[in-house]
Amino acid sequence: MRPYARLGLLVVAAIVGGCATALDESETAAKTAAALKASFRPAGQAGLDRLEQDETQRACSLAAGKAPPKDVAAMIEQTNLATIRYPADGKLLGDWKNGERIAQEGRGKQFSDDPKGPVGANCYACHQLSKGELSFGTIGPSLYQYGKLRGNSVDVQRYTFGKIYNSEAFTACTNMPRFGHKGILSEQQIKDVAALLLDPASPVNQ
């Protein structure tokens, strides 16, 4: 993909240009790659392909917890925006009750998980959503009253669906997974989670 190739070039330029000890850096990178290769084995549904980074993962790893350079960030967002597939039927919201179950479900994609078992979004691990659930994490912002504060326009629905589908399209190097792009959630599941956030009847908006 062309945008990805360009992103790769930008990342290389950032290392060579921004770092006086580029040689050290590339040696450490090589040693790290070797260590990764030698230190993991496939287990359950998790193969070694999970250690092969795409350009977004590579660029964000290089940023090492800080914001990436502006041009890299812009390229990451542009590249990821291009991956979002909006529903063919034009309906962006599903059933908030299913969305709540998906938001609560922490299983899925771990090597210890049944590959045929449920795959959730585990939203509550990082976000506050409905007021009734006290066991919520704080890595992401509170989403309580998400829809009440933003309304339920088509633009808001499209942003919400897109953000869940591929969060990197809107905030480069965010902590949030790319649920649609990486095949974690199905289109229907994303619609259901979007409904949990936007449906006026959802506990999130009470």
């Binding site: 990178a29 999970r50 980074q53 790893s61 917890g65 990082c126 066991s135 704080t138």
Partner: peptide
Amino acid sequence: KLFYFRGGTHDFACATCHSEEGKRIRL
């Protein structure tokens, strides 16, 4: 380097959960 290495289906690194003060997963 490994601490900041993002990969897998969820783009997670150690740093995703362990580089900010006062954060929680669930409780």
